[in-house]
């Protein structure tokens, strides 16, 4: 499966054999393979949107209010453009809107997950390594953070800071870092007891080398799994916040905002304005989740929760 090979790119290159085994075990589930292909497609669409979408939905010159709220499968009066998924209230092609929306949804979701991953993993490793008071302090914070539902924490932050892409990302990072910290810490504690760590200690390698060259690569699998699952969660949460009008601004509509914009027309039967962005969101979240689930099962069967 050539598509699958990109999968474990972040894994340490040295582990050639475990990596092969990972691919073959991953490919055992057809659903997971299909999900992976879907994820790749979605990422491609998001990246290539400006080149492959039928119109630029944010170039007002291309929009015609006369085309507003056309059902799927209709044609523009002016330009003759075919609207596969219909148009919104301003005559914007929904398909194009969705492609651009994916860009923002994925960008915010992945971006925040990456930042949270770096901060959280670093704190988790520090906790595991420093032990004692530092460990207790960090883990208390993690516990406190995790005892409140994500939506509440995000609401709180946006209430203090106001809307905006950056603030949404910040909220997502604050919501997510704790999970990375917890995962990294427990993975590191397991690794610390492994033989190679003992051996490295005997060789009197410097501490930082121990952590970054030896420990971190071996802690990667659970972190990658959590990362995948949290990307899906961030996308969901961002969509939810945007739907509530607290997320991204109207000039950079993510899928959540597209859904919110179509909401008022749904009751009058013009379902497509909300429905198709919803489907896009759904497929994205499900595919990422299924990939994450399978990776978790393959990488660490004991991690199942």
């Amino acid at each position: 499966m050539s598509a699958t090979s990109q999968e474990a790119a972040p894994m340490p290159p040295k582990q050639e054999t475990p990596f092969r085994r990972f691919i073959s075990e991953y490919s055992e589930s057809p659903v997971a393979v299909v999900s992976f292909i879907v994820v790749v497609l979605i990422v491609a669409i998001a990246l290539l949107a400006p080149w492959i979408s039928p119109q630029d939905p944010y170039d007002l010159a291309q929009l015609d209010i006369m085309d507003g709220r056309q059902p799927p499968g209709s044609r523009s009066m002016e330009t003759g453009l075919f609207f596969w998924l219909g148009t919104d209230d301003q005559g914007r092609d929904m398909l194009s809107g969705i492609m651009y929306g994916l860009r923002i949804s994925l960008g915010v979701g992945v971006g925040s997950a990456v930042i949270a991953c770096i901060i959280g993993s670093a704190l988790g490793l520090i906790a595991a390594f420093a032990g004692g008071k530092v460990d207790t302090g960090i883990m208390r914070l993690v516990d406190l953070q995790l005892s409140f539902p994500a939506i509440l924490v995000a609401l709180m932050i946006l209430a203090f800071l106001g809307k905006g892409v950056m603030n949404v990302m910040l909220a997502l990072v604050i919501v997510e870092w704790a999970r990375f910290a917890r995962t990294a810490r427990s993975a590191a504690l397991v690794e610390a007891r492994r033989e190679y760590m003992e051996a490295a200690k005997c060789l009197a390698l410097p501490q930082w080398r121990l952590v970054f060259r030896h420990m971190l690569p071996n802690c990667m699998p659970p972190i990658i799994v959590i990362f995948t699952i949290l990307v899906a969660r961030s996308i969901t949460l961002e969509a939810t916040l945007s739907f509530l009008g607290l997320g991204v601004p109207i000039t950079e509509p993510s899928l959540g905002l597209l859904i919110a914009n179509g909401y008022q027309y749904m009751l009058s039967g013009k379902y497509w304005i909300s429905f198709y962005p919803g489907i896009a969101l759904l497929v994205t979240i499900m595919a990422i989740n299924l990939v994450g689930d399978q990776m978790r099962d393959v990488l660490n069967p004991r991690l199942k929760r």
Binding site: G256, I259, M266, L267, L281, L282, N289
Partner: peptide
């Protein structure tokens, strides 16, 4: 994994 708000819309 379904977003709550989307399910709500579908229910409506």
């Amino acid at each position: 994994s379904l977003p709550t708000f989307w399910v709500g819309l579908m229910l409506i």
